[in-house]
Design a protein around this nucleic acid. Structure first.
Length: 417
DNA sequence: TCTGGGGTCCTAGGACCC
DNA sequence: TCTGGGGTCCTAGGACCC
């Protein structure tokens, strides 16, 4: 049996914990650049403010003038999350922190779930000052669903137990399938086409259909909904696989120097975080894109993935990022967003002995040629410090070269020639 | 003169999550 | 003028090898 503890309007509740004047008022927490609302209190939801609604549109409406907006403060939220975790650990159960505001716990040993759930809620509210809801179920997916029901019933106890099979079957008939964890908008659309609307319709489908439409993830979700646990509690986080630093710009950027400055900054942050986790990266991806919401701007977006000599050195990461940008950049667009993603992460200690990554010299040569072309035309080569050869950082790949990458790069070159 | 096919690895992109 | 940021998993299909 699992329980899911999910904080209510987490970011807003964190703000309220430190400023009681926000209680009972419509509050939203804003994304980076104060761009859009990413958390809303019930009062704000009741005013019709949608998740992800742009703040500049909200504040333009006179009837929403009293809505209070807070810029997000992630270190505060992370700290509050840790407090909740510690409260749950204090109950002596196994805890899996699933996201910043959600934790699964193993409740096999719990006999009176209602009582236990209420005690949890009270304790979290008292110690961490955060209101939350608790959902119980024989699988994680059902516990998630139970939590949703607990949240939806605002006047209720904040605890919902879906451990009873017949009770579930009854409920499934009135719950839209899109409410289920793992069923997103694309899946809903596909399911609608074959007449599936409720969770009950969904679990009644033959396996072959589910498999065909939603692959193995869909099958897993069905099993979980039937009470057959496919997902276990992960009390220890797995090794990190990627790390990203991405931002939308406060205003559109048209000058190359400005974009380069942004990308260098992201690369610096990324390398810092990499070192913070004791990791090195074996590949780096840079992307830039125009504003997809704009109806007037010409659109362009592209990304490039480069192999690195595994490293967490700022100079190496920044050097590779600049080279990538050099190849990506196209003049004459208004850029709205850029980012850098570090991939092929490994623990720092295992780095020794993996200095020369390219397994296929012939293919490297092809890429090198393409890159040399870029460099001849578009600027200098940033060399890896201490490199024995004059290869640019981004010509060093660990695995096979992606042919589509080479193609894409030549497309870019062609477009610019 | 005839020009295979199966296994494996890799990547981009889609979908989903909070 | 202003529309988030950070992740994971799965699959199709290309490239390669023998």
């Amino acid at each position: 049996m699992f329980a899911l503890i999910d904080a209510n309007s987490f970011y807003c509740s964190c703000e309220r914990a430190f400023d009681p004047r926000l209680r009972g008022k419509p509050v939203v927490a804003l994304s980076n650049n104060d761009g859009c609302a990413i958390a809303r209190t019930n009062e704000a939801k009741d005013l019709g403010i949608k998740m992800g609604a742009p703040w500049h549109l909200i504040k333009g409406q006179p009837e929403l003038r009293h809505v209070i907006a807070k810029s997000s403060n992630y270190s505060l939220y992370a700290d509050m999350s840790r407090r909740i975790y510690e409260v749950l650990i204090g109950f002596g159960e196994e805890v899996e922190p699933y996201s910043i505001d959600e934790m699964f716990i193993d409740t096999r040993e719990v006999y009176d779930r209602d009582k236990f759930g209420c005690a949890l809620r009270r304790r979290v509210l008292k110690v961490a000052k955060i209101p939350c809801c608790v959902g119980f179920g024989p699988t994680k997916t059902i516990a998630k669903l139970a939590n949703r029901l607990a949240k939806a019933d605002r006047e209720g106890s904040g605890v919902c137990d879906l451990s009873d099979r017949s009770e579930r079957d009854e409920l499934y008939r009135s719950i839209p399938v899109g409410e289920v964890w793992g069923i997103g908008s694309a899946a809903v659309k596909k399911l609608e086409k074959i007449g599936v609307e409720t969770v009950a319709d969904f679990v009644a489908l033959p396996e072959s259909i589910v498999r065909e439409l939603l692959t193995v993830t869909g099958l897993r979700t069905v099993s979980e909904l039937k009470g057959l646990a496919c997902l276990s509690l992960a009390t220890q986080p797995g090794p990190k696989k990627s790390l990203a630093v991405t931002r939308s710009f406060g205003r559109a950027i048209s000058r190359r120097e400005d974009l380069e400055e942004a990308v260098i900054y992201y690369a610096t942050r990324a390398a810092e975080r990499l070192r913070g986790h004791g990791l090195i990266a074996g590949a780096l991806q840079v992307f830039i894109t125009t504003n997809p919401f704009s109806k007037t701007d010409r659109q362009y977006g592209n990304s490039i993935t480069l192999g690195l000599e595994p490293s967490n050195d700022t100079f190496v990461v920044v050097g590779a990022a600049r080279q990538a940008l050099e190849a990506l950049w196209c003049d004459g667009y208004r850029y709205a967003k850029a980012g850098i993603v570090l991939l092929d992460l490994e623990a720092q200690d295992s780095a020794a002995g993996s200095m020369f990554p390219s397994r296929d010299p012939a293919k490297s040569a092809v890429l090198m040629q393409a890159l040399d072309g870029v460099n001849r035309r578009y600027g200098r080569l940033a060399l890896r410090p201490g490199s024995l050869t004059n290869r640019p950082v981004w010509a060093m790949r660990r695995g096979n070269l992606s042919p589509s990458y080479t193609t894409r790069l030549s497309d870019i070159l062609k477009a610019r020639a």
